[in-house]
C-alpha cells in the first residue's frame, strides 16, 4: 500500500518537474525543475527494486549531467532580456496537445493491456553483480558498440568545439 502511495507521489512530482521544464521562462528555473524530475525518477527505479539504476540515476543524471547543464547556463549568463519573446507559446502548446492526444490514448491502451500480476523477483535482482553479469554475457554486443558511440561523440565534440584553421 505504501508503495502505491509512493508511486503516485513520485510520478506526480516527475510530471510536475517536466511541466516546469517546459513552462518556466528562464533556463535556470527550467533546469532546477528538471532536477526534481530526475530525482523522482530515481525514486521510481528504487520502487522497482532496481538498485543499481537508482544509484546511477542519482549520481550520473541528477549529479554529473545536471551540474554540467547548470555550469553551461551560468557560463552563458542568460538574463531576462536575452530571452526571445514567444508570444504564441500557449497557441503552440495547445496545438501540441491536440497532436499528442491520440498518442496518449494509445499509451493508455498499451498500459492497460500489460499483465497485472507481479512476477517473483530473481535473487539479487537489480544489484551490481546481476546487472554486470547480464551486461557482459547476454548484452555483450550492445555494450561493446557503445564504446564506438562514445568515441564518435568524443571526436565529434573535439571537431565541433576545437580550434579552427587547419589546412
Amino acid at each position: 500500500m505504501l508503495a502505491t502511495y509512493l508511486f503516485f507521489g513520485l510520478a506526480l512530482l516527475a510530471v510536475l518537474g517536466a511541466l516546469g521544464l517546459i513552462l518556466f521562462k528562464h533556463p535556470m528555473n527550467g533546469a532546477m525543475s528538471f532536477v526534481v524530475t530526475l530525482i523522482s525518477l530515481a525514486g521510481l527505479y528504487a520502487l522497482l527494486s532496481a538498485k543499481l539504476i537508482f544509484a546511477i540515476q542519482l549520481i550520473v543524471y541528477a549529479g554529473a549531467i545536471m551540474s554540467l547543464i547548470l555550469f553551461i547556463i551560468m557560463f552563458l549568463n542568460i538574463q531576462e532580456r536575452d530571452l526571445p519573446i514567444d508570444s504564441n507559446r500557449w497557441f503552440y502548446l495547445a496545438g501540441g496537445i491536440i497532436v499528442v492526444a491520440p498518442i496518449a490514448g494509445l499509451m493508455i491502451k498499451i498500459a492497460k493491456s500489460l499483465p497485472e500480476e507481479h512476477p517473483e523477483l530473481i535473487d539479487g535482482f537489480g544489484d551490481v553483480k546481476t546487472v554486470g553479469h547480464l551486461l557482459f554475457t547476454e548484452w555483450l554486443l550492445p555494450f561493446e558498440i557503445v564504446s564506438i558511440l562514445l568515441l564518435v561523440a568524443l571526436v565529434g565534440a573535439v571537431v565541433l568545439a576545437g580550434k579552427r584553421g587547419v589546412n
Binding site: 554486443l141 550492445p142 558498440i145 557503445v146 564518435v152 565529434g156 571537431v159 565541433l160
Partner: peptide
C-alpha cells in the same frame, strides 16, 4: 538483429553525420 543494437548503431551513424554537417563552423 536486435533493437537496442540497431539503436546504438543508428546513433553512431547520426552523431558522425551531425559532426560532418557542422564541421564548418564559420
Amino acid at each position: 538483429a536486435e533493437l537496442i543494437t540497431v539503436f546504438v548503431a543508428l546513433e553512431i551513424m547520426s552523431l558522425a553525420i551531425y559532426t560532418l554537417i557542422g564541421c564548418d563552423r564559420r
